[in-house]
Design a protein around this nucleic acid. Structure first.
Lengths: 335, 335
DNA sequence: CTGAAAGCGCTTACAG
DNA sequence: CTGAAAGCGCTTACAG
């Protein structure tokens, strides 16, 4: 080790590089080593270090859907809380898939300092034989497996129901997501329950579902609308903003006035929802916070702390825009 | 090492695990070791292996913009070509940023088998002191730094110009991206040149630019349209599909008939462009191929081969849809 | 406070 | 064809 040529043993260099000098290295040596490190641009070889320590400085983030503006925010939050002490690396799988058992084994062979898993299912967690620090994101109902950070989508769903009821809507349609993720069941159930309590009816016949895809949602809406219209539906709630974009698209084609003839709302509050015309009313989910908190929890675990609150839930809030509220406006087209 | 308990030395196990048995291990031992490996679910510890070999099985993909449907396709291609011999990990940076020098040093300390860098700039490559296998993606003009796989956006731009000229357009506007990336200069230059050759005018006054953002593009178009209209502009070409979505959005609000009163086209052919209404005419870029070829080139480098063709260029092609061609149709709204 | 030494889990000449 | 041994770059008891 070249750095040791600046006066001391490799052991001392290691101590300094790891900040474990307290009461073990003289001030004199500390500064001498620091200078040598700076001069040589030395960076601790993480492979050697990992082998000796039994663990690396890599944190692996596993997620089924990385190409998603919502997820980009989550990542930002994770980065912020993890800082530069850890290398955040994204596990890349086929779109919409979680890594398979042998992928996981290979990832474990990297000896990551910790694992962050977004939107897992029970089967995945069952297989996950990893023993290291683990935090789940957006895994409602799976709290038994590991500390997790969840989103309280139900509260936002109730706010949305109240908003629509307050705007005078009485018959509402629901455009669901067909993926079996727990969050969608929660969104639907919470909304339906609150709607019923507020005197709005969501006829089972007026509930449909598609994949999370603008085109699919658009087609499904186009096919369903005549019937919904006949049934007196004046508002449609979509399980995701992506579904809602499909509805907005078809509604424009059909010349439907929004929100006068049809109010539209979604969940997620994706960036595009703020700039679309009309703006899309949506249940805002704190993506960056989700990442941030998950990162903090994982740090705690890595540092061997016991988490005071292993289960965290973040609030969702309704953002009202032009798609349900004429007054909410948004920018209004050509000037 | 537990696996060696199945009869032989660790050296033999290592040989089998690495497939270096040719003429060095007896058939007998090979199968005995294989069985032991299977029984114990043994996976080579990549940290120990990396240290001994001096290189890991990690391939790091560095990119400024991971939350982009186009990029998701690129990743798919990379995965396919890299297979399971390498761990593909995404370096996560702030949105739109490439990693800084010390990030890179830390990544290098992981001893990656290779590096894939998407859309870099010269400054980044200057700093990149990494010595290992390196392949650039979408880095026109930077071929001097490393083997690269590029996109021939110019040919698509020329096709687009021919298509618009053939549809009778004479005055065209251009909505550019303001980020300095080389690809945008190429898109613009190629289109303008071909347009001029075909007798279409793109008045400098009818060229504007915004960030890659639907809202920003929508506003800019809204502000510019009155003048464009007065100037007789009948088509607008956008540097990205994202820009075009903004134009389509505002055009709908204004009640502009598309493509009759205004034809709109973009670059990238994002998934949404196929399902929007009208569908968006766009220059298709082979994202998955880009990733696939880059992965193949990197593999070659890692395996010590000399690349027969270190510089690859993939063709772009025009996809004509309803936004420029009434006949191209697309699905047509409520049935 | 300091350094020599063992060991992390592998791979690879090397001698047999 | 096979195994003992050295070594990859670090960290961490341990003895001083």
């Amino acid at each position: 080790m070249v750095a040791s040529r600046a006066g001391v043993s490799t052991a001392t260099v290691s101590l300094v590089a790891n900040g474990k000098t307290h009461g073990r290295v003289s001030e004199d040596n500390i500064s001498r080593v620091r200078q040598a490190i700076a001069e040589l641009g030395y960076v601790v070889d993480s492979v050697g270090s990992s082998l000796a320590k039994g663990v690396s400085s890599i944190v692996i983030l596993v997620a089924p859907d990385i190409s998603n503006p919502f997820f980009a925010k989550v990542i930002e939050g994770v980065r912020e809380s993890l800082g530069s002490d850890f290398q955040l690396l994204l596990s890349v799988t086929e779109a919409g898939e979680l890594p398979r058992a042998d992928d996981i084994r290979r990832l474990s062979a990297l000896r990551p300092a910790g694992l962050l898993v977004d939107a897992p299912d029970a089967a995945f967690l069952e297989n996950l034989s990893s023993t290291g620090p683990l935090v789940l994101l957006d895994a409602p109902g799976l709290e038994a497996y590991a500390p997790s950070v969840n989103l309280d989508v139900a509260s936002g769903a109730r706010e949305l129901a109240a908003h629509l009821a307050g705007s005078g809507h009485r018959r509402v349609a629901y455009l669901d997501s067909v993926t079996g993720t727990a969050t969608f069941a929660i969104r639907r159930t919470a909304f339906l329950q609150a709607a019923a309590a507020l005197g709005m009816s969501v006829d089972p016949a007026n509930r449909i579902g598609t994949t999370i895809d603008v085109g699919a949602a658009a087609e499904a809406f186009a096919a369903a609308w005549p019937q919904w219209q006949q049934a007196g539906v004046s508002a449609v709630v979509c399980a995701t903003d992506t579904h809602a974009y499909g509805v907005l698209q078809e509604a424009r084609v059909a010349g439907l006035r929004i929100p006068a003839e049809l109010a539209v709302a979604g969940f997620d509050d994706l960036p595009y929802s703020a700039t679309s015309n009309p703006g899309l009313t949506s249940v805002h989910l704190p993506a960056a916070q989700l990442g941030l908190k998950a990162g903090e929890q994982l740090r705690g675990l890595i540092e061997g702390r016991t988490l005071e609150r292993p289960q965290l839930t973040l609030e969702s809030t309704l953002v009202v825009r032009g798609s349900t509220d004429r007054a909410a406006g948004g920018h209004s087209g050509l000037r």
